[in-house]
């Protein structure tokens, strides 16, 4: 039938244009990076079985983690407030309460031994620059270094919440929230912004945020972006592969490899979707109903057309 042939011609040219302008052009414009499934293949596997009790002593021990890190679940508060910490180190030191579940075990072990290497920021801290990463390398407490590190990782895993209790928001805050604000979820780098009764109190809080951001900007070279709309501006695949290894997509970026597990990465992305694509479930539901309605409409329109045109032909 002639009309169907014409429709086929229109469709072919439309689809050809679409293909060239969208999938094809974007494949040429943006580097495609395959996910490595958060395997961190470049880092050595853990060979020793850790002991959480020994790990606890090491983590709490003199010169180890708690000099800088809070562990709220173990009753240890941060030595300094976030702003003062950022002004000393460049960024707030993370609370280690959930580090054992958020971060990959191999990554944690490598991080304790050599932070700049595990974080893939050695280009910032090479010998020529004379700079060293603010987190000190753990040189061992006198025993077998690999065993001690495995013990510390085991301890961190033992105190962390279980994977199914880790909410998307917690995953985001632990993994991303000390550098990235998320305005649409009311998140600042120093925590949720409370609602204030007095303007003066709000301004005081804002000044703290600005002080923190100034220190962070100095540390990172520029202020890390607000992530409110990243699910729409970057998309799931980009975010996932970028988090996995930022250097793959932006060579030389100051953003460290975060070292999260695949499960945590999924939760982080869910939180980003909760901020920037809140109506996705409603959209799918309404979409299906509208499609049904419009198909029925087209069907009736066809019947009406046929009833009228039978007198014309």
């Amino acid at each position: 039938m002639k009309e169907l042939f014409i429709l086929a011609v229109v469709t072919v040219f439309t689809l050809a244009t679409y293909y060239l302008v969208e999938p094809f052009a974007h494949s040429k414009m943006h580097k495609h990076v395959e996910s490595e499934k958060f395997a961190y293949a470049d880092l050595p596997a853990l060979t020793k079985k850790g002991d959480a009790n020994r790990g606890k002593d090491l983590v709490m021990g003199a010169g180890a983690c708690t000099g800088c890190h809070a562990i709220k679940v173990a009753g240890l508060a941060a030595p300094m407030d976030p702003v003062a910490t950022a002004q000393s180190y460049g960024v707030n030191t993370p609370d280690l309460s959930n580090a054992g579940v958020v971060y990959d075990a191999k990554f944690l072990a490598a991080l304790i031994k050599n932070p700049a290497h595990a974080l893939k920021v050695e280009h910032k801290y090479d010998a020529a620059s004379g700079k060293v990463h603010p987190m000190a390398q753990f040189g061992g407490a006198g025993g077998d270094l690999d065993q001690e590190v495995a013990d510390m990782v085991a301890y961190l895993q033992s105190i962390a919440v279980k994977q199914d209790k880790l909410t998307p928001k917690m995953a985001f805050e632990t993994a991303c929230g000390r550098c990235h604000a998320m305005k649409y979820e009311n998140w600042t780098q120093i925590g949720d912004k409370p609602s204030f009764k007095m303007k003066k109190d709000e301004l005081a809080f804002d000044i703290q945020v600005i002080d923190y951001q100034d220190a962070l900007t100095k540390y990172m070279g520029k202020l890390p972006p607000d992530l409110s709309m990243y699910i729409r501006s970057r998309g799931e695949h980009y975010i996932s592969t970028f988090v996995e290894n930022p250097q793959h997509l932006i060579e030389g970026t100051a953003m460290p490899r975060v070292g999260v597990t695949a499960e945590t990465a999924e939760k982080v992305i869910e939180h980003l979707a909760d901020a920037g694509d809140t109506k996705r479930v409603e959209r799918d539901e309404v979409g299906k109903k509208v499609m049904v309605f419009i198909v029925i409409f087209a069907l009736f329109a066809y019947l009406w057309k046929r009833s009228i045109w039978k007198d014309l032909h």
Partner: peptide, 10 residues
């Protein structure tokens, strides 16, 4: 119009 409306439906 009846033909238009059918095309609009599609």
């Amino acid at each position: 119009m009846s033909k238009d409306l059918f095309v609009v439906g599609i």
